Computed example of a mutant assay.
Amino acid sequence: MMETIMLFFSALVDLSNAMAPYILFGLVFAGFLHELVPDSIVKNHLGKDSVMSVIKATVFGIPLPVCSCGVIPLAAGIKKSGASNGSTLSFLISTPITGIDSILATYGMFGWIFTIYRVVTSMIISILAGLLSNFYAHEEKEETVQKKPAFSMAAPTKNTSVTSFSAVATPVFPKDTNSEKRGSMVTRAFSYAFGTLLKDIASPLLIGLLVGALITVAVPDNLSEILIKYNWLSYIIVIAIAVPMYVCATASLPIAAGLMLAGVSPGAAFVFLSAGPATNTVTIGVVKKMLGTRTLYIYLGTIIAGSLLFGLGLDYLFRDVNVKELVHMDGDAGLTAWIASLVLWGFVLYYVIKPYFFKDKECNDGSCCSA
């Protein structure tokens, strides 16, 4: 028992050291991106039912460091601002699958080939979904999203039904109005990175690290052998878990690493990285209400089929590579990795514990309510 616990903490430390430097750098980059990108840039380019609008929506969404819950009000905002169904759907898919913080963390953990593959395939899935929506669902009667007097970035909680979701038109890149005029751009960028964005992903990131470490040490050897022998079974299991589950792009990485270290194929792990962040039960309900039933079918069908297809493609690409060699976790992490890991854990634990001491202030600052 004690040996298992020690192995768990060892795996947790290795995962943290492998990801932390890239996550922190990505957060800083995201903070400056948030400050430099004009609020109106997406709204002014996504209104037409055209191929170019869908491509623009996908490209705009790829680098944005927004999680699965944060993208919902953003998508509602650009839809209310006049974006087409296809553009909205492309943005809704591409944004949570990637993000500059997730891209850098993917590179740090899986290497540049895996990273490029993840980004390119997410673009293809997003563009295809948008084009299909514009072509097959443009005549579908859209349900109107009711207006509220105030806008909140809060995702529906367990006490809020998905069908009651509503939002008003807002800037696609909402700024912190209380701090926008205060301090320098550098101060605001760091405030957004570590005060808003990291808070939004703290809880799912903590869960992802714990689950990833647990998978690494707890999956029985015979289960790994079964999944390796019957690769199709691992795909079915992963897709069944990933579609309804809420997990952000960055937090999905340690889980995928745990699966691969346990012997699951890179393709099956990729399916989780693709379908997990792009779908969850809340987003499914919002897509149905905001864009219609036909678009919902396109949304789910494209993500599931695309993830499975590209997962098989990744397995073919890495057919002669040892799965465990794809996960880059140095047992002798340098001082930078240790410092970054300590900083990351300090922020994560702070944001996870804080709501229990300040419950009356929770989710009043426009966050995703994930911390």
Rank of each mutant, 00 (worst) to 15 (best):
I113Y: 12
S40T: 15
G99C: 05
S94W: 06
N134Y: 01
A76I: 00
T98C: 15
I124A: 00
P38D: 09
H34I: 14
T106A: 15
K48Y: 07
G31H: 09
I103L: 10
K147T: 05
H138R: 14
S50T: 15
V66S: 08
G61H: 01
P38Y: 13
I125N: 01
G70R: 03
L46W: 06
T88Y: 11
G111V: 13
L33Q: 15
K148M: 14
F32H: 12
I113K: 13
F135C: 07
I124V: 10
A11R: 06
S40R: 15
E140A: 05
G26S: 09
V51L: 15
D49C: 14
I93V: 08
I72N: 00
K56Y: 14
D14V: 07
T88R: 01
V54Y: 03
N17T: 13
F29D: 09
F29W: 15
F114K: 03
G47T: 11
S87R: 04
G108S: 12
G86R: 06
A76E: 01
L92S: 08
A129W: 05
K80C: 02
S87E: 08
A137T: 07
M19Q: 11
A76R: 06
F135Q: 11
I78F: 09
K141G: 03
H138M: 11
Q146S: 11
V13D: 13
G47H: 07
I72P: 04
A83C: 07
A11T: 01
G26T: 10
A57Q: 02
A30Q: 11
K79M: 06
I100P: 07
M19N: 00
I55K: 14
Y117R: 15
C69N: 07
M109C: 07
G47L: 07
K48N: 14
A57D: 04
I127Y: 02
V42G: 04
A137Q: 03
G70I: 02
F135R: 13
K141T: 10
T95S: 09
I55S: 04
T106P: 03
G26A: 04
S84P: 00
H34E: 14
S50F: 02
N44M: 09
H45T: 10
A30M: 14
S10P: 06
T58N: 11
L33T: 10
S122G: 05
N44E: 12
K79L: 07
V37P: 03
E140V: 03
S53N: 10
C67S: 01
I125A: 09
S10W: 01
T88C: 01
E143Q: 03
K147H: 03
A137V: 03
T144P: 07
L104F: 14
M19I: 11
T121D: 04
F8G: 06
P38E: 11
H34K: 14
M109S: 02
A20G: 02
I78C: 00
V37W: 02
V51F: 14
G111M: 10
G86V: 00
H45M: 08
H34M: 14
M19D: 09
A30K: 10
S68W: 01
I41T: 11
L64G: 08
I62Y: 13
F8R: 02
I97V: 14
K80Y: 05
A129V: 03
L131V: 15
